[in-house]
Design a binder for these strands. Structure first.
Length: 561
RNA sequence: GGCCCAUUGGUCAAGCGGUUAAGACGCAGCCCUCUCAAGGCUGAAUCAUGGGUUCGAUUCCCGUAUGGGUCACCA
């Protein structure tokens, strides 16, 4: 029996049930019939139920690149590490992606259902496919059984470290690669436990070039490690699964985190050994956080904002997070947004080669700004809808409050928003809304004034406050236009000795009792118990005449006691 | 430690051999203004460092420093 025949015997011994070949798989998963330039991308997380901000970042790029080129965006679940699996992890992930409008064309759409012809899309269900590939490589002598135990490997690493050698299973240190096929067969027949390793033909003395879409050419040492291809549980390692899956799912561009750069040389060799065409790589930068002056990766344990669920819980609109991420992905996004004020971010074209390759610090303050902008583009109806959806889950008190009188709530939301010449930009997240509008709700307003009014006593004394309130109650009317209303307020203010022209007042403050701003300030506090609010005319219009007068009178009486 | 990646204001960054080195956030000031938010204007603030290459380097090359990543039967 020659060596080739022996290898076949070995392959059959290891995988007796596998009869198909890579060629069969090539037929089953044919090249896609897509337009020229169409990109097939994939997001391939582990089903931990936790969507990291970096994952959202990556999947957003995946989706944009696929959509823009009329390609396909696949969601594949990498569940080959059963220790990491979490119950309902897949559906949790999909739900979170959907919350941000990241929708895949293909792959998992629920815990068990999937779209597309290139499945299964869970790696644990692709065992057969990996085995077909592994078997073929055994026949070619490129995969061999390794009988080393965990202790063997520990010892090896230790001695390598001591001898200042590159650690790993390679070359002269790869004990099992040197067994003859007969020896290997014999060991297996004797029920020795084994895993399958790749036989690398590379040398770290030679260089190899990776062409990265984001970074350009990356030069590194060839792979020479005999990495594990199939683990003892029968499932593949990431490396092997990456090559097999991305090939047979006909992925064109693998967008992945930069932590994969060092293993790219290995992946190249794997593709080569399997006879696959290389995929293109786009290694994305890591999103970092400033921690006492030093950059570090956003950590799942230390940083709540590493989970996208954080932003949902806080009440940031999904689009805010996406648009913020887009500003990191392509910094000309902001220019585009300025030129296309009402457009949807989906219409923005992401350019992979314009990505900055250094890790960006996550900037909450910038997020806040982007988010204010996003919210300011919403009509009161749209905003209300989003807030209700959010509050239903995360703030039931708010949900109930807003629902007590939806028509009224709509009017509250419309203040300085609908038909306004200048739209308020003071909400960055839904959580900001209640602290800034609570006074529009009688019950909350009354609770708040229980502990006293916040009149600015440094400006006016009690008697002046009373005087203003009395004066204003006398002239208040709901039916005036804003201009007429303000003229009446000025008229009254003037009578009481206040300056109605701010410029004039600023020049000679001592000539007056105070300014028109002080007068409206008193009315404002009486109505809202806040010194800063939106336009009080608009507020009074929503409160209605009765409630307005009630509040003013109440303030007057409390102040007098 | 080996290998890899990165380095333009406080932050995100444009720039691709000759620029007064864009823009955004933030900050400061002014204007507008019934307060605030917004808006308008103005301002302070940047090419990590040392060598080359070049008539000329932020831009190209090498070294150094700093930061990050990676060296598993985890992905």
């Amino acid at each position: 029996m020659n060596n080739e025949e022996k290898l076949i015997e070995l392959a059959d011994l290891i995988f007796p049930d596998i009869t198909e070949t890579i060629a069969d798989l090539e037929k089953r998963y044919p090249k896609r019939d897509l337009e020229e330039g169409a990109e097939v991308t994939r997001f391939a997380p582990s089903p931990t139920g936790f969507l990291h901000i970096g994952g959202l970042f990556g999947s957003l790029i995946d989706m944009k690149v696929a959509n823009q080129s009329k390609g396909k965006f696949i969601l594949r679940i990498e569940d080959t590490d059963r220790k990491r699996e979490v119950e309902n992890g897949v559906i949790e992930l999909i739900t979170q992606m959907r919350a941000f409008n990241i929708i895949n064309d293909e792959g998992l759409v629920s815990e068990t259902e999937a779209l597309g012809e290139y499945g299964p899309y869970k790696q644990s269900e692709r065992e057969y496919i990996y085995k077909v590939c592994a078997k073929e490589l055994i026949k070619k002598g490129r995969v061999y059984p390794c009988f080393c135990t965990a202790e063997d490997l520990d010892k090896l690493r230790e001695s390598q470290e001591k001898a200042k050698q590159i650690p790993g299973y390679y070359g002269q240190y790869a004990r099992c690669r040197n067994y003859s096929v007969d020896e290997a067969i014999e060991r297996i027949k004797n029920n020795k436990e084994y895993i399958l390793r790749f036989r690398s033909l590379g040398s770290h003395l030679r260089k190899v070039k990776i062409n990265d879409i984001i970074r350009g050419k990356i030069e590194m040492a060839q792979n020479d490690q005999d990495i594990v291809v199939i683990k003892s549980d029968g499932l593949p390692t990431y490396h092997f699964a990456h090559a097999v899956d991305d090939h047979f799912m006909r992925v064109t561009t693998a967008v992945r985190g930069e932590e994969w750069i060092p293993s790219s040389a290995l992946h190249m060799e794997l593709f080569e050994a399997l006879g696959f065409e290389q995929v293109k790589y786009a290694h994305t930068p890591t999103i970092m956080k400033n921690d006492n002056g030093s950059k570090r990766k956003l950590s799942k344990r230390k940083d709540p904002e590493s989970a996208v669920s954080f932003f949902i819980e806080e009440g940031y609109p999904a689009d805010s997070v996406i648009e913020y991420l887009l500003t990191i992905i392509n910094s000309d996004y902001e220019l585009w947004r300025k030129a296309n004020k009402t457009a949807n971010w989906r219409d923005f074209e992401v350019k992979l080669n314009k990505l900055n390759s250094s890790g960006a610090l996550f900037d909450m303050i910038k997020l806040t700004d982007v988010s204010k902008e996003v919210i300011s583009r919403l009509s009161s109806t749209e905003l209300l809808e989003l807030v209700l959806e959010w509050a239903k889950i995360y703030d039931t008190n708010l949900y109930n409050l807003l629902n007590e009188d939806l028509e009224y709530t709509k009017k509250v939301f419309a203040i300085e928003r609908d038909n306004a010449t200048k739209i308020r930009k003071d909400f960055a997240k839904y959580k900001d809304i209640l602290p800034n509008t609570f006074y529009m709700y009688n019950r909350l307003y009354r609770e708040d004034i229980n502990s006293g009014f916040n009149f600015d006593s440094s400006k006016l004394d009690i008697n002046s406050v009373k005087e203003i309130l009395e004066g204003y109650i006398g002239i208040h009317s709901d039916s005036l236009s804003k201009e007429d209303w303000f003229n009446k307020v000025k008229e009254m203010a003037e009578k009481l000795g206040y300056c109605t022209n701010m410029k004039e007042y600023k020049q000679n403050p001592d000539d007056f009792k105070g300014s028109i701003a002080d007068v409206t300030g008193v009315i404002r506090v009486a109505l809202t118990n806040r010194q800063n609010t939106p336009d009080i005319y608009a507020i009074m219009q929503v409160l209605g005449e009765k409630e307005t007068i009630d509040r003013l009178k109440n303030a007057l009486s409390m102040k007098g006691e």
